[in-house]
Design a protein around this nucleic acid. Structure first.
Lengths: 145, 145
DNA sequence: CTAGGTTCTAGAGTCGGCTCTAGGGCAACC
DNA sequence: GGTTGCCCTAGAGCCGACTCTAGAACCTAG
């Protein structure tokens, strides 16, 4: 990785992070950039690779459901520099738990959906001879009407 | 509590499904009830256990990220009765894929977050003697400034 | 020199999914 | 017979996270 630390335009950062330029400006307003954006002539923003790395982390956090205010909090801690590591860790751990819980919930939902898919598959395979209403508790059995 | 199977009030359904009464009425307007709600004197809604089961399924679908329009679609198919099973299956399969993809994405996010948590743990355990900036690619290394 | 592309700002608009309000009805209990 | 409590409707409001608009400046290529 030959980091030449060169200035990237907002458009290039958009490309690199998958965020839109709109979103990049929006995130900036929301205080979600670890270090202040430098400006070139005409007021144009310049980013560097570190900013891109930071934004990629933010994308991960967002993708895993961290709300913007929490990301801003984390950003603030990072901006405050060393001494805030314990708090950052706590924040990340909280989010980690949250993500685990999310995966858990989704997995449980998936089980049920898979079950229902199975019911329909059986039903379609062996013809609609017997209705699958009595199929015990789990799936909705509103197939009857 | 030997509930005699029939006629639950909206409040009771709210309790049983975890949805608010507001949301129940909202879902009804959105066409997300498999069979039309019966009304008692004074226009009050009456539900039965089947409705509750159906709503529980809807809750699962929502919780796993199915948008309301898709749920409405599924509801419509169910309302149309037999003959629509293939479509229902297709819809469910699509959602199943979607949930799997979601879990996948979250799992990948979790890995990264866990990695970062580990970095902070190490950092805090053995004191801030060495900065963890050089810690290779993955985590943001904005800790330096 | 003009045209096209990128950028800038402040602020408005959108979308999904609720959530709540106002204003009223009915039913039961004290 | 008043108060409490659940219910009704239509419609407004809210929240998070974007997403877009208008109007202007700049830069580069042809």
């Amino acid at each position: 990785m030959p980091e030449v630390a060169q200035d990237l335009s907002i458009g290039q950062v958009a490309e690199r992070t998958g965020l839109s330029v709109h979103t990049l400006r929006f995130y900036e307003r929301e205080g979600i950039l670890a270090n202040p954006v430098r400006r070139g002539p005409g007021g144009r923003r310049f980013y560097n690779e570190d900013d891109v790395e930071w934004l990629r982390l933010c994308v991960i956090l967002r993708a895993s459901g961290m709300p913007l205010p929490a990301i801003r909090q984390y950003t603030d801690l990072v901006r405050q520099g060393s001494g805030t590591e314990k708090e950052r860790l706590a924040l990340l751990r909280r989010h980690q738990e949250h993500v685990i819980a999310q995966i858990d919930k989704l997995t449980r939902c998936l089980d049920l959906i898979t079950f229902k898919v199975g019911v329909y598959e059986d039903h379609l395979e062996q013809g609609p001879a017997d209705q699958m209403c009595g199929a015990s508790s789990l799936p909705e059995n509103a197939e009857h009407d």
